[in-house]
């Protein structure tokens, strides 16, 4: 079972929900796919060890062979290679690693090198939650390759794999949602929360992933999010109130299920509801 925690708007509580759900269920794999700002381990405090490097291929031009024909630069869709009178210049951060330039070069002057854009880390030692995280190097623009590589480590051995997604609706979100069985959309009952929830609903509907909504800080705003969910027939999985105690625990990096009684069961119960929703769906 693979569950992603996502939201259009940032700061709605994805990481909080992902971590607390993983702890409540146990024997869980948790993958932090918010590789631009991975935060799950601030709450788990595992010793992490580097598992592997994430690399992308980049062109390497042999100046001896290159006759400056410019075919590579004409072919490149990303403006990552430029042919100048003085030589060919490569702009690695713009390169997607498609291999096109090497393919089109009539002189076979282009080979490929690799460069690191991020790393994958894993809990060195775990008993309850097996944490994996991706980390995009500072200054690197492309998060999706790191997310794709992290996704390859989803294991079927645990109860559940929980994916903490990045915010938004762009390509890194799609990368983190690929192959998911279910998606929990976390929102808050404000105009921004509702607007961005609708965008996120568009995403999961287009991808055909079954989903439900979790309303965080459920008492800060108005009822429009709930009314929207009812009118769209979207299950509301849980409401977490705007409790200063929860906010303070969060600020200290303490998962609230470990301090506030009753919440552990509520997460277990939510998971059971999700499983039921999925089996009803399968039966239909």
């Amino acid at each position: 079972m693979k569950i992603a925690i996502a939201s259009g708007k940032g700061g709605t509580g994805k990481t909080t929900i992902a971590v607390n759900l993983a702890i409540s269920l146990g024997n869980a794999q948790l993958l932090d796919c918010d590789v631009e700002e991975p935060n799950c381990n601030l709450f788990l405090r595992h010793d992490m060890e580097e598992f592997e490097d994430v690399t992308l291929p980049v062109p390497l031009v042999d100046k001896e062979k290159c006759d400056l024909c410019g075919d590579c630069a004409n072919f490149c869709q990303y403006n990552a290679i430029a042919s100048l009178p003085s030589g060919v210049m490569v702009f690695p951060k713009l390169c997607h690693g498609c291999g096109g330039c090497a393919l089109v070069c009539p002189e076979n002057a282009i080979t490929e090198n690799t460069r690191s854009i991020g790393i994958i880390e894993r809990s060195a030692d775990w008993s309850h939650v097996d944490l994996w995280q991706g980390l995009l190097h500072i200054g690197e623009p492309m998060a999706s390759p790191v997310i794709h590589q992290l996704q390859e480590h989803i294991s079927e051995d645990n109860n559940v794999a929980i994916i903490d997604s990045p915010p938004g609706t762009a390509c890194p979100v799609i990368a983190s949602l690929s192959g998911m069985d279910y998606c929990i959309l976390v929102t808050e009952p404000t105009p921004f929360g509702l607007h961005d929830l609708k965008l996120a609903v568009d995403v999961v509907r287009q991808l055909g992933i079954p989903f439900g909504v979790l309303i965080n800080r459920s008492d800060i705003g108005d009822s429009r999010v709930e009314e929207y969910c009812v009118s769209e027939n979207i299950p509301i999985l849980m409401k977490v109130p705007n409790n200063r105690e929860i906010a303070v625990l969060y600020s200290k990096g303490i998962p609230f299920v470990t301090s506030l009684p009753g919440w552990n069961n509520r997460f277990v119960h939510m998971f059971a509801n999700i499983c039921e929703q999925l089996s009803t769906r399968a039966a239909e």
Binding site: E37, N39, Y250, S251
Partner: peptide, 19 residues
């Protein structure tokens, strides 16, 4: 914001700004 996540992400953004 003065939360564990806020601090961590601030550090990364300040690295980006100095980059």
């Amino acid at each position: 914001e003065p939360t564990a996540s806020g601090i961590h992400d601030l550090e990364r953004v300040l690295e980006l700004s100095s980059h």
